[in-house]
Amino acid sequence: MNWTPRRRDLLKLGLGTALLSGLRPAWSADEDSAPIRVLDLDWVDRARDRAVPVRLYLPGRDAPVALMVFSHGLFGTRLGYSYLGRHVAEHGIASLHLQHVGSDRGIWNTNVLTRLGNVLQAVRDSEATARALDLRFALDRLLAEPALGERIDAGRIVAAGHSYGANTTLLATGAHVVRSGKALSLRDDRLRGALLLSAPPFYGDADLSPILGPVQVPSLHVTNTEDTIDIPGYRSPVTDRLAVFDAIGSTQKALAVFHGGGHSVFTDRTGPGGAELNARIKEATRTLTLAFLDGLFRDGRPSAAALEPWRMRHANTLARFDLRAG
């Protein structure tokens, strides 16, 4: 994919003079939600000669806010998962959505004769590594931005992702992967937790314990009973998501399995699973994310006090819920 990076003025993007001057917005911290800014930034990692476009959902709060860094699945873009990014931002948590140019929608929007080859390239170890480096670069860049970095609480940052993005999140939070006799060093110690939507196993590795045991940050795992990944040359059933949950090393983790749905229900698409179930799963995922982050940022772990009321509210949608906060 050929990407021409563009510099954009923060004022043009709607960041506004209120943000640049530190002017307090007209809302109270006691409100359930708040106005947000949506910023598209076309960054380039010069060291790797790789574009890293991002979309930032920024709460309109004056004090520094927590941050979720979100990585899309195969064929995604920075525009996706807006239902989740907007929601957490409306509740005071910034959400930075990355676009990984080696595995984004551009590899699908090509000649049908070259599409399979593009897909196979996109799931190579080199691209998996590049995606984790995209996350590190984007976090470095955001925190260094004079008008934006001061808005982020660097002590409250989590990684999140769907499908391939969950794989990226695991690499960035400590997954131990050895390739050609060399361990990949991709962990980012700034990340305090992981939100994993439809996490796939690591390709070619039957035993996940040595790989995921080193992931010690609190984690939230979300999937559904019909969550099957099916792409050319690769198929992964929902049992793989459960195996990731079991193998991850942290003793502070939670798992939610919804009835039905399908793998794409966690994207912005409204069709998978049917309109009614799709909407229910998305609403449950939004509120579950907030409940998980509430406990994580307050107590450093998933909170039964926050998650048990959520479980009771969504009992009819849940096939399984497992909380381990030891």
Rank of each mutant, 00 (worst) to 15 (best):
N2D: 02
W3D: 00
R6F: 00
R6W: 00
D9L: 14
L11N: 11
G16I: 06
T17Y: 08
A26K: 14
A29H: 12
E31H: 07
A34E: 12
I36T: 11
I36M: 10
I36W: 14
V38N: 05
L39V: 05
D40V: 09
D42R: 10
V44W: 03
A47D: 09
A51T: 07
V52T: 11
V52Q: 13
V54R: 05
P59G: 06
D62H: 14
A66M: 05
M68A: 10
F70G: 04
T77K: 04
L79V: 04
S82G: 13
Y83H: 15
L84H: 12
H87D: 15
E90C: 06
H91Y: 04
G92R: 00
G92V: 01
A94C: 09
S95E: 12
S95V: 10
L96V: 07
L96Q: 08
H97F: 15
L98I: 14
G106D: 02
I107A: 04
I107W: 01
W108M: 12
W108V: 04
T110Y: 03
N111V: 11
T114V: 09
L116D: 15
L116K: 15
G117V: 11
N118Y: 07
T129S: 09
R131C: 12
R131T: 07
L135H: 06
R136F: 03
F137Y: 12
F137Q: 01
E145C: 13
P146Y: 08
R151S: 00
I152T: 00
D153W: 01
A154L: 05
A154N: 03
A159N: 05
Y164E: 04
A166V: 06
N167R: 08
T169S: 08
L170S: 04
L171I: 02
L171C: 08
A175H: 02
G181C: 07
G181Q: 02
L184S: 11
L186M: 09
L191G: 04
R192V: 11
A194L: 13
A194C: 12
S198W: 01
P201W: 12
D207I: 03
S209W: 05
I211H: 03
Q216N: 07
P218S: 14
S219N: 02
L220A: 15
D227G: 09
D227L: 14
I231H: 06
V238M: 13
T239I: 06
V244L: 13
A247I: 02
I248E: 00
S250H: 02
K253S: 11
A254K: 00
V257Q: 02
G260A: 06
G261A: 10
H263Q: 09
S264F: 13
R269Q: 15
R269H: 12
T270P: 05
G273Y: 07
G274S: 11
G274E: 13
L277V: 12
L277K: 06
N278W: 10
I281W: 08
A284Y: 07
T285E: 00
F292E: 01
L293Q: 13
L293E: 12
D294N: 15
L296G: 01
F297V: 13
D299M: 07
G300Y: 08
R301Q: 14
S303D: 13
A304Q: 02
A306P: 10
H314A: 10
H314G: 14
A315P: 14
A319W: 02
F321D: 03
F321S: 06
L323Y: 05
G326V: 11
G326Q: 14
G326W: 08
G326M: 13
G326H: 11
